[in-house]
Computed example of a mutant assay.
Amino acid sequence: MRLTKLALAAVLGATLASQAVAGGFAPVVVEPAPAPVVVTEPEAPRSTFGILLPLALLGGLVALAVANEDEDSES
């Protein structure tokens, strides 16, 4: 019985001691609070395609109109 009490005390002591030193002996490091994140939306990229496409279509329509006029005058 005496050996059982001694073994139980050793197991209990080892369990409590391991929990007591679980954090180690290093000093506590407090990290500074992160700075607030500011989200800025980027400017929309400018595109020349928005003006070139209508101009190309207009040029194509003018070319079609000129081509149709030449066919009408020959007949």
Rank of each mutant, 00 (worst) to 15 (best):
V11F: 07
G13P: 14
A10T: 07
A17C: 05
P54A: 06
L3Q: 05
F25G: 13
V11Q: 02
V28I: 13
A33G: 10
A63Q: 12
A14E: 11
A9R: 03
A17H: 12
P32A: 06
V38F: 00
A67W: 05
A67H: 04
V30L: 15
V66N: 02
S73E: 13
A67I: 08
G59V: 11
A65V: 11
G23Q: 08
A20N: 04
F25N: 14
T15V: 08
A26S: 08
A44P: 00
P27Y: 06
V37G: 00
T40I: 09
S18G: 11
P54T: 03
S47Y: 00
P34Y: 01
E43F: 00
R46T: 07
L16M: 06
R2V: 12
A9P: 00
R46D: 04
L8H: 08
A10F: 04
D72C: 02
L8V: 09
E69Y: 08
F25M: 14
P27V: 07
F25L: 09
A67T: 03
S18H: 14
D72V: 09
A10Q: 02
A33H: 07
V21W: 05
R46W: 13
M1V: 07
A22P: 10
T48H: 14
P32M: 14
V21N: 07
P32W: 14
L16Q: 04
L3Y: 05
E41W: 02
A9V: 02
G24V: 06
D72H: 08
L8E: 15
G60Y: 12
L55C: 15
A7C: 12
I51C: 11
R46E: 06
G24W: 10
L3D: 09
A9C: 03
G23P: 01
L6E: 04
V39H: 05
T4M: 04
A22H: 12
V38L: 03
A44F: 00
D70T: 05
E71S: 08
T15N: 10
D72T: 04
A20W: 03
P42C: 00
K5L: 11
A44H: 01
E31W: 13
F49P: 01
A7G: 15
S73Q: 07
P45R: 01
V39D: 01
V37W: 00
R46V: 09
A7R: 11
L6C: 09
G60F: 13
S75Q: 04
T4Y: 14
V11P: 02
A56P: 02
L6Q: 07
A7W: 11
A14N: 10
G24I: 10
L6S: 14
V30D: 15
D70N: 11
P32N: 06
L16N: 05
V38K: 01
G13I: 11
G13V: 12
F25I: 13
L3K: 06
V62Q: 08
S75A: 12
I51E: 09
P54I: 01
L12Y: 08
S75Y: 09
A44S: 11
V37S: 01
N68F: 13
A67E: 05
V28T: 07
G60P: 02
A35R: 01
V21K: 06
A17T: 05
S75L: 02
S18V: 13
P42K: 00
L61E: 03
S73N: 12
A65E: 13
E71V: 06
L53F: 06
